[in-house]
Design a binder for these strands. Structure first.
Lengths: 117, 117
DNA sequence: ACATTATGCAACTAAATGGTTGCATGTCAA
DNA sequence: TTGACATGCAACCATTTAGTTGCATAATGT
């Protein structure tokens, strides 16, 4: 519970997993079968992705008979926002200003090396 | 410029890269050498990470003589927040409530299979 | 001019990742 | 009880990733 931020960022890094979160966001409490529908990968592929999402605590599951119901847990995302994104946004304007000023300081020497063939 | 969200998420998935962003956040405009200090990996390792951060447009570079100055670009992070995190946060309470209600509906059958040895 | 400094590029390796297939197991319904 | 359904587990493979080392190049200071 201390710093699984890493697991959360890793989990968010894959498009399929973000898709799964999006689907749960659209309709919470879906079964594995539901989540597999119109997914381009196999059921086991989806299972593996879900395992990561569970490990990151982004998805919690509940068994109901033979069905596995999946629920979105928005808390880790909230934490990312608070612990990590917030601090960048906070100085967004200031950072841009710093960059702008820096760029203006060397109007002659721009990307001499950056654009070499 | 359309959807490099994937590149951004991927870039954020690595602890070293987040560390680099943190360092630039603490002190903008550092050189490669600066950023390598007290980093546990080699300079080339750092270079590779920075390449990804640049590809994701999270860091912009400016050459000044032989020095490469790095600046944090907070815009993509801002976009993540707006396009992706915001929508989850928005229903945070509602989603938790849904989960809570769902859990209460089956007080008998919890994780019968989930806890099998 | 020369040594030093700041960086880039390329080749290579090890490990992690994303995907598959095959088979096993528990649950439901007839 | 039996067959179909929902899912899990394990082995395997291909690709990507994170890291290294070695050498090349451009700018700087003396």
């Amino acid at each position: 519970m201390t710093d699984d931020m890493n697991a959360v960022f890793k989990a968010l890094a894959d498009p399929h997993r973000r898709e799964l979160l999006d689907r749960l966001h659209a309709h919470n409490g879906q079964t594995l079968g539901d989540l597999c529908e119109r997914m381009s990968i196999s059921r086991q592929g989806v299972t593996k992705h879900i395992a990561l999402l569970e490990a990151a605590n982004l998805v919690v599951v509940m068994w109901q008979g033979r069905e596995k119901l999946h629920y979105l847990n928005p808390v880790p995302i909230q934490q990312i926002h608070e612990r990590w994104i917030g601090k960048f946004e906070r100085d967004r304007l200031q950072a841009l200003e710093t960059l702008t000023r820096a760029l203006e300081e060397q109007p002659d020497e721009q990307s001499e090396r950056g654009s070499k063939k």
